[in-house]
Design a protein around this nucleic acid. Structure first.
Lengths: 207, 207
DNA sequence: ACGCTATGTCTACGACTGTATACATGCCCC
DNA sequence: GGGGCATGTATACAGTCGTAGACATAGCGT
């Protein structure tokens, strides 16, 4: 009955791991990150995650306690090592815009934490977990890079723009944004970032 | 057995409607809009929608065919009459920013279509339905109000910012944005809208 | 007033969910 | 090389899901 290894999503053959708790845990975690990113917290079951990891569903509960705790670790894994914004303070706006446009390009189907966030935001528990993950990992070090007062608020506004573009381009796939010219779109988004990355010296609501 | 009318969410007592297909359909639709907005497409079952409408679940299938088609009508209902951006061309940025901050304020729990969109974006079918709804209803007439070239792209970017702020403030509830000073936040968001609502005369990627 | 049809309900089904309990087996250590 | 424990599997359970089919009743037309 184990002839079902021709899964549509699993890239690797079963490969009969040696009994190794650490490696198995890690395999489950990687499978969970991929599955939650592609289908969201509610859209994937523990059996599917386990199958792609080459184990049975019960090992998830043994190693992580529950689906919810697995999700929490998956969120940490997905957000922790990523540098959501690249570049120094001076070129931060442009670099972030270029990276965003490249990662949300039509062909790319990168497993980005923003996808995990957006596709899991519907479930209240998942949203709470994602919120803490975003605040601890991304928001904090992003705010540290922004000079001037109100850095926390501006950092989260920048994340809002990033999330919004991810939503429209990749999750929903609206026409104008999904099919936009990359260079032009990057320019527009860079202009959006401008008032966020530059310190708000005297630039308030003047018109 | 019909003594269960003390529902936690249903604001109205059962009120024994007269047999009226139109009124019942509308009651189901209103209940669906509220439920989908609060819990997202995957987060609510047809029985819950039906209960809040005062009917049984099967009437949903009789009147709408399926949960998915009910969702499609709910999306239309939620997006169609709303004016997502208010104000004339000159004050559009400021008005939209003020409206956004007010609607995403801490106390307000308005049934906004942006919540429906964000909380349902996880399901692929729901995302597709939402995409068409956003494009047909909101994106089109918003683009018509923006002067200058690339109006479609700028309109969807504006929607991206709106969605992002909704996400962070209300769906996730991140601290810096959820607890921000309204006037200050409105000012920052208005500055974000500036390059989108004003025509991009010669402002391209120059540095 | 009566019957027919629109309107609404009841029951049930198969599939899927997360997880608890019981069982099997590979591997390390003595 | 064999006991013992860590590692992994199999089965089952209670619940929910969307929806199909049979049944009940209210109300209008004649």
């Amino acid at each position: 009955m184990k002839s079902g290894e021709s899964g549509t999503d699993a890239p690797e053959p079963p490969a009969k791991r040696r009994r190794d708790a650490g490696a198995t845990r890690e395999a489950i975690l990687r499978s969970a990150v991929a599955a939650f990113t592609r289908h969201g917290y509610d859209g994937v079951g523990v059996r599917e995650i386990a199958r792609d990891a080459g184990v049975t569903a019960m090992l998830i509960n043994r190693y992580f306690g529950s689906k919810e705790q697995l999700f929490a670790e998956a969120v940490d894994t997905a957000f922790a090592p990523r540098t959501v914004v690249s570049g120094e303070a001076g070129t931060l706006g442009r670099d972030t815009a270029l990276t965003l446009v490249a990662r949300t390009a039509s062909g790319a189907d990168r497993l980005d934490p923003f996808l995990l966030m957006l596709r899991s935001a519907g479930s209240p528990r998942a949203a709470e977990i994602v919120r803490t993950g975003v605040e601890r990992h991304v928001g904090r070090d992003l705010a540290a890079r922004l000079p001037g007062p109100g850095a926390d608020e501006r950092a989260e506004l920048l994340l809002s723009v990033l999330a919004g573009v991810w939503l429209m381009r990749k999750v929903l796939g609206t026409q104008a944004l999904a099919g936009a010219d990359p260079a032009e779109l990057a320019g527009r988004i860079e202009a959006l970032f401008e008032p966020l990355v530059s310190p708000p010296e005297a630039a308030s609501t003047q018109d």
